[in-house]
Design a protein around this nucleic acid. Structure first.
Lengths: 207, 207
DNA sequence: ATCAAGTCTGAAACTTGTTCTAGATTAGCG
DNA sequence: CGCTAATCTAGAACAAGTTTCAGACTTGAT
């Protein structure tokens, strides 16, 4: 099983150029198909054909559809973290900056709701066999939030707050994607969760 | 909560006794199979056979596996709400009571982790076609939390807090079920989310 | 009791994720 | 270059969710 080389992971065997190529083609096809049609539209046979790779090879690179979609999410998250870093949030208080950052991410997802659907559904449907990859996504999200808070060395308490915000983010996203909550409600819930930040740091606004 | 037909089904055509029977047999088989093996062990053919119903009939009652498992969750939630009501939480402050209630529910799920896995995975995997049923589960959960808070007429702000707690509850449950968080962490996160309650009602403990 | 409409059954068919196989290709190495 | 192990390909095969269909059974109204 190959592993990614780019931003993380101890890559078991390093990939040759052609393999890196294949991997990229696969992820690209996955994102493209997810973009139309969402989760269901990402059919393994089609991904294989579309990325010019045999079905068996696809499964060698990504041992299941969920693995594939979670990897797709990692990919997109990295891209997004880069973008967010380039234009940091402008708010005064940490809570404000975090909410702003998440809403910005949310707006990005709105532009590709089907892709978002595929990735998030895969993420929450993932079972234990995908734990390492899901964990990686979770760490990346945590990093984004900590970045927005401007924290380098969070306390345990702060980490728990970040986790609650993350839980809220994921779950609110799902309710929006399945049409059970409006965008306005998602914003309110995120802002509500972010108020926990002030609790851990009453002398907030400064940094 | 006011009267309302116990199970709160919209019941388009009322079911005959035999049909009610079948429905019950199906839900029972579903819960039994989920109890061993979790989500994957609930195989439609087996549910049908085990509840002595033809496959086509099973699909008439529950149009998909996810519908079936979400209905199973509704069923279990009702049971649990009843239990919780009989032994209300003993804490002073609302935040404390809510956290206590959720941890009690959590312990109940711990006793049947596979069943919990099946239900929660179905819930978060559900697409738009299951929205009404998922919404019903969500309302039931909200009712449980509001009960624990001792609130009858929550403000919008309080409803948002309840939603954040719900988001945290679901998402934390998933991370625990997929082995990415310990029980201790789930407790901490729930308690953290519950601190939001105090924010909306600084003069807390009284009614 | 009888008839029409609706429901249930059993079995086969279809779809899509996943696995398996045999042979072709490629990569690393002496 | 020539060998060996690993990788890749095409395609069949398998598994489980879902759909379909013809015929038997219930139900409700007359």
């Amino acid at each position: 099983m190959p592993a990614r080389a780019s931003t993380s992971r101890p890559a078991s065997p390093p990939l040759t150029a052609r393999q890196e190529e294949r991997r990229r083609r696969i992820l690209h096809a996955s994102a493209r198909l997810a973009g139309r049609g969402g989760f269901d539209a990402v059919q393994m046979r089609e991904v294989a054909e579309s990325s010019q790779v045999a079905l068996g090879t696809l499964y060698r690179y990504f041992p299941s559809k969920v693995h594939l979609l979670v990897a797709t999410m990692q990919d997109q998250l990295e891209r997004m973290h880069g973008t967010l870093r380039r234009r940091p949030p402008g708010g005064e208080a940490p809570a404000e900056r975090v909410a702003q950052t998440l809403m910005r991410a949310f707006r990005a997802l709105q532009r590709e709701p089907q892709l978002a659907d595929a990735m998030v559904r895969a993420l929450t449907f993932a079972d234990r066999s995908v734990s390492p990859e899901v964990d990686q996504v979770s760490r990346q999200t945590t990093a984004i939030i900590l970045d927005a808070m401007g924290l380098e060395h969070p306390t345990d308490e702060q980490l728990s707050v970040v986790r609650v915000i993350e839980h809220t983010w994921h779950s609110a996203l799902i309710t929006w994607l399945s049409g059970r909550a409006s965008i306005a409600q998602v914003r309110i819930d995120i802002e509500t969760a972010c108020r926990l930040i002030d609790l851990t740091d009453p002398a907030a606004s400064g940094r």
